[in-house]
Computed example of a mutant assay.
Amino acid sequence: MKPITKNDVEGVRGEIYHMIIFAMAWVLIGEYAINFADYALTGGIVLAIVVALTLVSENLYGREDDLPDVAAPGRRRARNYALIFIFEGIAIMVTWVALLRLGYETWVIPAFAGVAGLHFIPLAAVVRQGSYYILGIWIMAVAAAGFFRMRSGVMPDYQVECLIAYGCTLGAVVDAGWIVLRTYRRLK
């Protein structure tokens, strides 16, 4: 296994914060979908996990000084990272407008989740985070399953939206945990 560097830890910390933001956004969507019927219990649990991930990130920050420093990633990698998020934003806006104009507003959450899952596939290659491939596939599968449950009318739309949002949150939290475990394993 290749020794871990200061830049590796900085990259991991960035990805932990990416997962924190992603998880918090989706848990809020889920809570809103069910009108906080669980008294924000799920949101509270995710918030506790987010606090733990933040503390882990700060612990990693404290360890950076003891690690060797190597050249920062190239400009091309940073440009590709930015382009992925720009295209994701454009895809979400186009999808949102198209679905609303066509009268399919109930499909917005599954479509957003599908776009969010899709963005993890190229992002995995750019940030060299193999677990993002699994996360992207998981989120797209959750979005597709939710879409077909919604379309068939098996469950009320708000419940499907909540399950999609919680599925995205679960994927982000599990992936962040996996990233942390792998990093600490490399630090030993």
Score class of each variant (00 low, 15 high):
G44A: 07
I16D: 03
Y61W: 09
L83T: 13
L28G: 06
P156E: 15
A176M: 07
E10H: 07
A111R: 06
Y17S: 09
Y32W: 09
D69L: 08
G74F: 03
F147G: 01
Y132V: 02
V126K: 03
T169G: 06
D69M: 08
V50H: 02
R75A: 13
A33I: 01
I90T: 04
G117W: 01
A78P: 01
A113D: 03
V115T: 11
R128K: 15
V97N: 02
Y32G: 08
A141D: 00
N35D: 10
V142P: 04
L102Q: 12
T95G: 15
G136Q: 05
A143R: 07
Y158I: 04
G30P: 09
T54S: 11
D175T: 15
T5N: 08
A33E: 05
A40S: 14
A48Y: 05
L170K: 04
M1E: 12
A113R: 01
T95F: 05
G167A: 02
V97E: 06
F148Y: 12
G146R: 04
L83V: 13
R77H: 05
I164A: 06
A71Y: 04
L53P: 01
P156D: 14
I20C: 09
E15V: 10
W26N: 02
A143G: 07
T42I: 14
W178C: 03
R128T: 12
P122S: 11
G136I: 09
V154S: 13
Y184K: 12
L102S: 14
Q159F: 08
Y132C: 02
G74C: 09
P3M: 05
V56Q: 14
R101P: 00
Y158G: 00
P110Y: 09
G146E: 06
R13P: 01
W178Y: 14
V27F: 04
G44V: 05
A33G: 04
R149M: 14
W178D: 01
G30L: 04
Y104V: 03
N59S: 14
I86S: 06
R79P: 00
E105H: 12
L53D: 02
G89E: 06
V50C: 11
F87D: 04
L99D: 10
Y32M: 11
F148E: 07
E58P: 00
V142F: 10
G74P: 06
R75E: 14
R182W: 05
L163V: 00
Y166A: 01
